[in-house]
Design a protein around this nucleic acid. Structure first.
Lengths: 115, 115
DNA sequence: CTGAATCCCAAATGATACTG
DNA sequence: CAGTATCATTTGGGATTCAG
């Protein structure tokens, strides 16, 4: 375990701040979840699951939890039966959107050039 | 296809173009490699290895290859002994820099808010 | 409806030794 | 110097089942 090799935000020991951002939005579904919440606004768990084709319940739960920990999304649970849980972007999450927009644009151009 | 990944962009269907961009710049060292090349310009293999603390030869080779396949960096090898190999950003790679800049800014703010 | 708990496999990364 | 090759380990993610 040679030296400075800790990626965790909580440890503040990283090689550059890009990695923090990357750590938060990478993962197979995170960007898509953020993109969906950013474009369509507040959504319930089941709605998200329907919007994001192919995702399993486990992965959705897992990545939502991760995003919530990072304070990128907010989870609001209404104590009713059957339960209602709504997710939305936080202030930090909203400030992530311009980056996703640019990544979207870059990706579109990249595809265009490769045809 | 472990390790030496094929260029999936040409054959995969994506759910959104953000994922293409993410596929290219994620991976444990890719962003750092791009950032270094973007900030410091053309670099030799060994210089990169020294600049990026903690990376192994294998990972550097591997991710450089991946980035080259994606046409994000250019590899120029001079046939001398001992060999000289220089890496630099392509046009596409350069157009990735603004995104990395924004991720850097976002990350710095994120850290600041979490202290 | 939302989500926790397991089990399992594939993929990513790391350690180390070797080479033209 | 700039890589390969091989093996070991860690991590990420999918399928399935259970639960409040």
């Amino acid at each position: 375990m040679p030296e400075d090799r800790i990626n965790k935000v909580s440890c503040s020991n990283y090689r550059c701040e890009i990695e923090i951002t990357l750590e938060i939005i990478s993962g197979k579904w995170n960007a898509l979840i953020l993109w969906t919440l950013g474009k369509e606004g507040k959504k319930r768990f089941g709605e998200l699951k329907k919007s994001i084709s192919g995702i399993t319940q486990k992965m959705l739960t897992q990545q939502l939890k991760s995003l919530e920990k990072y304070d990128i999304i907010t989870r609001v649970a209404y104590d009713v039966s059957p339960p209602i849980v709504e997710y939305s972007l936080t202030e930090k999450g909203l400030r992530l959107m311009p980056i996703l927009e640019e990544m979207d644009i870059w990706g579109k151009e990249y595809i265009k050039d490769h045809k």
